[in-house]
Computed example of a mutant assay.
Amino acid sequence: MSTRTAVITGASSGIGAATARQLAAAGYRVVLTARREDRINALAEELTAAGHQATPHVLDVTDRTAVDTFAAGLDRVDLLVNNAGGAIGTETVATADPADWRTMYEVNVLGTLNTTQALLPALTAAEGTVIVLSSTAGLATYEGGGGYVAAKHGAHVIAETLRLELCGQPVRVIEIAPGMVRTDEFALTRFRGDKDKADAVYAGVADPLTADDVADTITWAATRPPHVNIDLLVVRPRAQASNYKVHRKV
């Protein structure tokens, strides 16, 4: 049997890069996709030097033509990790820029739709697994998060609906919904490069989740026996009880 192949979107940093490392260590041939060529090339070189199989591919998941071309070039896909996403801004619904909402929707929702549709025939042939990385934002709302919350609700609904539609087919659909995760870029991007505001998100929180924590969760779910489907797994740091309730040391 050919080596199991995992496609990871948004693999250039954070959770995507950490997931690529852990899936490679679990024996997958990893296909690294992202828009930043230098980042995925460096990660592929790192993994190859460690004895793993890794292939980088520059890809914008919102470009359907590019996604279809990418999919046509793959000989096998056992696992798709829809990780590409992100948040922009904390404005209220009354003051938000529709362009920011559109960008978040296109990446988090349409990007997931594009890659899932394009790779679903190969995943079905391999009796594979689709993983959607959503967020606790996709399960509960909070002020200042309208655009991101709406987008992640969309990602959540894709996973939930696809699971219903594929019932009886040899494809698992898994949703992983992380809470507070501290990565190098997520909050910084959300606050438009303002490091002080980004750091304030995690102020006083002893141990927010790391990218490795989420990658470990993804890898665990993906490597369960084929008949076991982890429909929805919510993972938060111990200090976070909900999107609102977070214990902070003063």
Results as ranks from 00 to 15, higher is better:
Ser2Phe: 13
Arg4His: 10
Ile8Pro: 03
Ile15Lys: 06
Ile15Thr: 00
Thr19Lys: 01
Ala20Gln: 05
Arg21Cys: 03
Arg21Phe: 00
Leu23Asn: 01
Leu23Ala: 04
Leu23Tyr: 01
Ala24Glu: 04
Ala24Arg: 04
Ala26Pro: 10
Arg29Val: 00
Val31Met: 06
Val31Pro: 10
Ala34His: 08
Arg39Ile: 02
Leu47Glu: 06
Leu47Val: 04
Gly51Thr: 06
Val61Met: 01
Ala66Trp: 07
Ala71His: 06
Arg76Glu: 01
Arg76Asp: 03
Ala84Asp: 00
Ala84Met: 00
Gly85Asp: 03
Gly86Thr: 09
Ala94Gly: 10
Thr95Val: 06
Glu127Trp: 00
Thr129His: 13
Ile131Gln: 10
Ala137Trp: 06
Leu139Trp: 07
Leu139Glu: 07
Tyr142Asn: 11
Gly145His: 02
Lys152Arg: 11
Lys152Cys: 06
Lys152Gln: 07
Ala159His: 07
Thr161Ile: 13
Arg163Ala: 12
Leu164Gln: 14
Leu164Asn: 13
Leu166Arg: 06
Cys167Leu: 15
Arg172Cys: 05
Ala177Ile: 05
Gly179Ala: 10
Gly179Lys: 04
Met180Tyr: 02
Thr183Asn: 12
Asp184Pro: 01
Glu185Lys: 13
Glu185Cys: 07
Thr189Tyr: 08
Phe191Thr: 10
Lys197Phe: 03
Ala203His: 13
Val205Asp: 03
Ala206Arg: 15
Pro208Tyr: 11
Pro208Ser: 10
Ile218Tyr: 02
Ile218Gly: 03
Ile218Arg: 05
His227Leu: 13
Ile230Trp: 09
Leu233Trp: 10
Val235Gly: 05
Ala241Arg: 11
Tyr244Asp: 14
Lys245Gln: 13
His247Thr: 13
Val250Ser: 12
Val250Tyr: 05
Val250Cys: 02
